[in-house]
């Protein structure tokens, strides 16, 4: 995950006692413009209904993959079952690069790469969620938290031979032919996506106890080694 800056709509949301820090405020009006990228598939607001993608009312605090009568990818449903609730941090990561966040997502969208635009978009969407938990400007998340990967970490050249040895621990569950049934396939990913995903488990941004444990004990160079090995398959 890149550095995630939290957007705050209004100072009135800052609760008493929360430290006030330098923050980048998203602009909901600008976010409405960014939302045009999403409108082909998503609706939000009083008359919203599900189109290709789910409606986005009450998105903050909603369990991933949980809107009825929407066809989700197995991966997103699994993440929801593992406990992923959409909040500003997970939405920011998802919108930045949907396929890196959930490799089999049906959201066929390259992502919003610009942090400022994402802040604006989330500020816009936040207006349609009543839940005050884990949304921009609310107390629990008003403090900037980082799940940051430095350029140095991303630049580590993976030792694919070491990765091959380490991979044997992965293939006790993940099939080397990339089969995606029950347990997701992990071969042939872009290396950076793989690295980001593993660090997200390591930092416990992504849910799933097994993966948090497996990633949790991998050093940066070991994650890079695995990314290099699995990325080179198929």
């Amino acid at each position: 995950m890149k550095t995630i800056l939290l957007s705050v709509l209004s100072a009135t949301f800052l609760s008493i006692g929360a430290p006030v820090m330098a923050q980048e405020f998203g602009d909901a009006e600008d976010g409405a413009q960014v939302f045009k990228k999403c409108r082909a598939c998503h609706m939000v607001g009083p008359d919203a209904f599900n189109r290709t993608g789910p409606h986005l009312n009450e998105l903050f605090g909603r369990r991933a993959g949980s809107v009825e009568e929407v066809t989700y990818s197995d991966g997103l449903i699994r993440m929801g079952n593992d406990g992923l609730m959409w909040d500003v941090e997970s939405l920011d990561a998802y919108i930045e690069n949907p396929k890196a966040f959930a490799s089999d997502t049906r959201m066929n969208f390259p992502g919003v790469k610009d942090q400022g635009q994402r802040n604006d978009l989330l500020a816009f969407l936040r207006q349609y969620s009543a839940s005050p938990a884990n949304i921009p400007g609310s107390a629990p998340t008003a403090m900037p938290r980082e799940v940051a990967l430095s350029d140095e970490t991303l630049a580590i050249e993976g030792d694919a031979e070491y990765g091959q040895y380490l991979s044997s621990e992965c293939t006790s569950c993940h099939q080397i032919d990339g089969d995606n049934d029950g347990i997701p396939g992990i071969v042939g990913w872009p290396q950076e996506d793989f690295v980001v995903a593993m660090h997200a488990y390591k930092e416990k941004v992504r849910p799933h106890p097994v993966m948090q444990m497996m990633a949790g004990r991998l050093a940066d160079d070991e994650i890079a080694a695995l990314a290099a090995y699995f990325g080179g398959l198929e």
Binding site: I77, G80, N81, T171, S172, C173, H174, Q175, G182, Q212
Partner: peptide, 30 residues
């Protein structure tokens, strides 16, 4: 280490079972 919690909802328990099916396929081919 980790362990499932008591009182987990049905969706998570079903997902855990489906994960075990994936594991069986994975480890068998391994």
């Amino acid at each position: 280490g980790f362990i499932s919690d008591t009182g987990e909802d049905a969706a998570l328990r079903k997902a855990t079972y489906e994960e075990s099916l994936g594991w069986y396929a994975g480890i068998s081919s391994d």
